[in-house]
Simulated scan of single mutants.
Amino acid sequence: MDDRTLNDLLRRFGLSDKEIDTYLSLLAHGEAKASTIADAAGVSKRYVYSVSESLAERGFVEVNDHVVPTTIRANPPDEVINRLRADVDAIRPALEERFSRVERQTEQFEVIKSRVTVTKRIRSLLADAVDEVTLSITAGHLPEIRDSLVEAVDRGVLVLLIVSDAGTAEDIEGELDGVASVVRTWSEAMPTLLTVDAAAGVVVPPELLRRSNTDRQAIHFSQEQLAPVIAGSFLGNYWPAASEVATADPAPLPAEYGNFRQTVLQATLRLRAGETPHVTVGGRWTDDDEPVEVSGRVVESKQGMVEPTTNEFPVENSLVVETDEGETVTVGGQGAFVEDVEADLVRIEADESGPDETDAGNVAGDE
């Protein structure tokens, strides 16, 4: 080990640079007078006495003041190491007791100043999507992320897409195949808003994507409290103003979903195809928080994802289920309180009395 590395390690045990020089000189001499060590370490004799007392308290040296002149002896390294190890072991229980085991917080906000970085962040977030994506993107920039959207849809992710700053559906018709579960267009320019799995996303002002010399900046966030707010604004303010131009075919059955918006969309598409999907819902009663499993036929959905909308407020998504026992139960998603049941997991199957559905497609197309 070189001197620099040795000095760095000794500093970790609280020794100052002069204490290290004094101690290493003592090690080289074994035992010596203060004046000898002072000359070797380049410090005063008085300082050697002071440092030696400090080193002796920590077990590094032993001061023999019963002789004249006083001598200072370095303790064997094994003794020093064993004492340091014993000190470390002694403090371990107290440190463990005080240590709070929490997950390391990821960076919650990042300021983005370039279009290239915005595109990279969007692609990265889409690649990580598991359950749900809400996205508004300009027609001009849709081709840059189109492949990432198609891959997300192919993985079974619910993708609700607004293509903004678009002329007519025909202008972007070739870009819409397979890019989303539902696509809407809006002729006006709007911010690029992305949320992924209600946990992360980006907010980009229109100017940043339109001009290279703007001082406007985008925000990339990773915060579970913020993402639902952005998604709520997207669905409540922008989604109703846009026009529906494409909807994916229902996914093949049976299918199981933890994302309730996806459940409602799939059930709605089945209902509008003249089918009566059968669901098994695992969740809890909203009035007493007791666990429950509900099984029955979906007879109605309330939603605003596809036309015609049937919800009473923008973010309402619920199912009306006629149970196998003949009762009518309303089912909502996470945080439901108006409905009878808050669903955690829903399995959708073809109704036994209906046709056997095995090969429904999952590619977006114009309605």
Rank of each mutant, 00 (worst) to 15 (best):
W285T: 12
D288M: 06
E290L: 15
A273E: 01
R261V: 03
T263D: 04
Q262T: 13
V279Y: 00
D288A: 08
D287H: 14
V281W: 01
L269Q: 05
R270V: 06
L271P: 04
T276M: 02
T276A: 02
E275K: 00
W285P: 02
P277Y: 11
E290I: 01
G274W: 08
G282T: 14
R261Q: 15
D287I: 13
P277D: 04
D288K: 02
G282W: 15
D289T: 09
V264C: 05
D289W: 12
G274A: 07
G282E: 10
T286F: 13
Q262I: 11
E275W: 00
R284L: 11
L271D: 06
W285R: 15
L265T: 01
E290A: 06
R272V: 05
G274N: 04
R270C: 03
R272I: 05
A267V: 10
R270L: 09
T276R: 08
R261M: 14
H278T: 12
A273V: 04
H278L: 06
T268Q: 13
D287T: 09
R284M: 10
T263M: 04
R270Q: 14
P277C: 02
R270W: 09
P277G: 08
A267P: 14
V279N: 00
V279I: 02
V281M: 01
L271V: 08
R284K: 06
G282M: 14
V264W: 03
G283V: 10
